[in-house]
Design a protein around this nucleic acid. Sequence first.
DNA 1: TTGTAAGCGTTATCAC
DNA 2: GTGATAACGCTTACAA
Lengths: 343, 343
Amino acid sequence: MPTIKDVAKEAGVSIATVSYVLNNKSAAISEETQQEVWRAVEKIGYRPNVTARNLRSSQSRLIGYAWHEAPRYGDLNVVLEHFTYFLAQAAESAGFHLLTFTYRCGDPIAAYDELIRTGRVDGFVIASTTTNDARVRYLMEQDFPFVSFGRANPEWDFMWVDTDGTAGVAAGVNLLIQHGHRRIAMIAWDEESLSGGYRANGYFQAMREAGLSTPANFIWRGENSEQTGRDALAYWWDLPPKERPTAISTVSDLIAIGVINEAERRGIVIGRDLSLVGYDNLPLSQYLHPALTTLEQPLEKIASEVLWRLTNVIGKQPVKPEQRQLLIAPHLITRSSVGDAPV
Amino acid sequence: MPTIKDVAKEAGVSIATVSYVLNNKSAAISEETQQEVWRAVEKIGYRPNVTARNLRSSQSRLIGYAWHEAPRYGDLNVVLEHFTYFLAQAAESAGFHLLTFTYRCGDPIAAYDELIRTGRVDGFVIASTTTNDARVRYLMEQDFPFVSFGRANPEWDFMWVDTDGTAGVAAGVNLLIQHGHRRIAMIAWDEESLSGGYRANGYFQAMREAGLSTPANFIWRGENSEQTGRDALAYWWDLPPKERPTAISTVSDLIAIGVINEAERRGIVIGRDLSLVGYDNLPLSQYLHPALTTLEQPLEKIASEVLWRLTNVIGKQPVKPEQRQLLIAPHLITRSSVGDAPV
DNA sequence: TTGTAAGCGTTATCAC
DNA sequence: GTGATAACGCTTACAA
C-alpha cells in the first residue's frame, strides 16, 4: 500500500504538505501545490492508513456494540438485528465503524473493560438494558463514552434513547376501546422487566383514562414465549363467558402468536370473538392468520439519535441537558386482529 | 491509560524488557525480572494499546463483514443473524474482532476497496454470494484474504464453506418417500438463485433415486415470500384431486408458511391431507400450526470453519488444497407437518 | 507557503 | 540478560 511518503515523492513536496492538503488544514497551501498533491494521490491510489492516523490522534473510530447474549436459536432478535443495521449505517455516516463483540467469558464487564483499556473503541452503544444494569453502572464509573438504547435505573444520569412503550401500548388499548371493547386484558412480562413495566403502564393508563376497570385477574404475567400467550388465553377462556375479556393487549408479538394458536385450537376467531394487539411488528406478524395489529419501534430514528449523542460525547461536543434522554413513541400498525367488540 | 513506559518505570526496567516479558519472547529474561514486570503490569492495570501494536505490525486484527444489503423490515435474516453471532465468537477466539459495515453508497466494491486501502481490516467474510459475485471476483483480483459462506462461480478457485442444500432437500424428500408419498412437488426459487438451484437439485436427485417422476408442473418457482407458497398451493389444489401432490418440499420456511396459510384457508389439514417440509428452521417454525418439519444449517460449525480458513490465510499459514472448500449437510428436524401419505 | 522534526505506543534489531 | 533506539504512517507545532 502506498504511504504518504510516496505521495510526497510523486508530487515533489514534503509529507507535511501532503498531510495539510489531505486534511485541508488552513496553512494556505498554494492552489498549484494542492492540485499537484491531488494528482499524485489519484495517480498512485493513495488512501491514508487508518491505524497510523488513529495512533497519532489516540482514537480508534470504532464503536463497540455487544451482541445480545448468546441467542438460543429459537430466540427472536429481529428488533435488535434491525437496530444494529441502522446503527452501523449511522456510524458510517459519522466516520465510524461498528465493532461487534460477544460476552464469551460470560462476564460482560470484562469484555467492555478489555476494549476500553486496549484502546480498541472510542465508545459503546448498549442495548437490552436492565434496571440496575451492570454495564451502565460500570461505564458511568469509568466515565467512558456510551449511549444506550433503553432506560435503566431512573436515578442514574446517563444518555439514552428509548421507545415510549407506555404510549405505544396505550395507543393499542385506545384502538381497542374505540372498537367498543370494555373488558380488555393484558399479557405482560414479569415485574422485573423494565421495558415490560413501561408497556404494562400504558395499559393501566389508557384503561384508567377511559374509566375502565382492570381486575387483577386480567393481568397475566409470564416470560416472553409463545407458551405464555397460550396459557393466558386458556386461563381466561376457562372462565364463565361473561367474565372473559373481549380483547387482549400484549407486550410482544411472540406472546400474541401464542394467543392466536391457542385461539385456533379452541375455535375462537381472532378479530371477531376476540381482538388482539401485539408489540414489535415481527416480520412474520403480517403473515399470521389473522394479520396482527401491532406496534413498531422507529429503529432507524432511534439508531441515528443514539449515534448522534455518542459522537458528540466522543468529540467532546456539549449535549444540552434536555437532549441527554429521548423517548420516541412507536407506530401503531393496524391489521385484522382487531375488530369490533362482540355484542 | 498507562503505557508500556509506565510499566517500565514502575518495574525499574526498560520498555524493551517489558515488551519481551509481555510477548514472552525468548530473550531469556531472568525469572525475577519477569515477576517484577508482571507485578507492575498488575499494579497499574496496564493493557497494551491495540492501535500502536497494529501500526507496528501493520495489521488491524479486524475482520470485515458486510451486513446483508438494506433489509426491508419484513425480511427474514434470522439465518444470517445467527451466523454473524457465531462468526463474532469465532473471531474473538482467534484474537480478532468483527467490523461490520454496510453498502451505503450502493456500491459494495467501493466499500470493500476503502476498507482494504485504508488498512482497516485484515480480511473479509462474505455471505449471500451469487453466481458471478462481484465481491468474490474483486477480492480474488486484489488477492486480499477472504472466505465466503456460500459458493459462487464453480470455475473460480477461492475458499468457501457452504451448506449442502442438495443433501438437505434430498433428506427431506426421502423422509416424505418413507412416509409413503409418491406425488411430491417442489417449490423453488427462480433459476438464477445459486443456493436455490442446489436445493432444487436435492429434490430431483432424491426423486430420481426413488424412481419417482417429476412432472414439470410439480415444480413451482417464485421469489422468497409467503405469497409464493400460497400461489403454488392454490395452483395445485385447483387441479383435479388425482393430479395433486400429496407432499411438498420447499426451499424456505417462509414459503412453507404461505403453504400452511393457504391450506388453512382451504381446509386442508397439513400433516394429514398434505405433508410439508421447509428449510431454515426459522425461530417461528416451531410455533407454526402444525409445527414445521425443516432443515437447519449448522451455523456455528460453518462460522468456525470459515474463520479457521480466514485466519490461516491472514497468518500466511498454508491451507491444503482439499481444505479450501467445505460442504456441510444441514440437519433434518422432524416435526408434525409430515405425515403418512393419504391412501 | 512549505519543510523539519517530534511524537503517538508499540515491536524488534542491535549493542553492551 | 537487559537497554538504547529505529522504525510503523501519520499529524502538527514550529521554523524557515
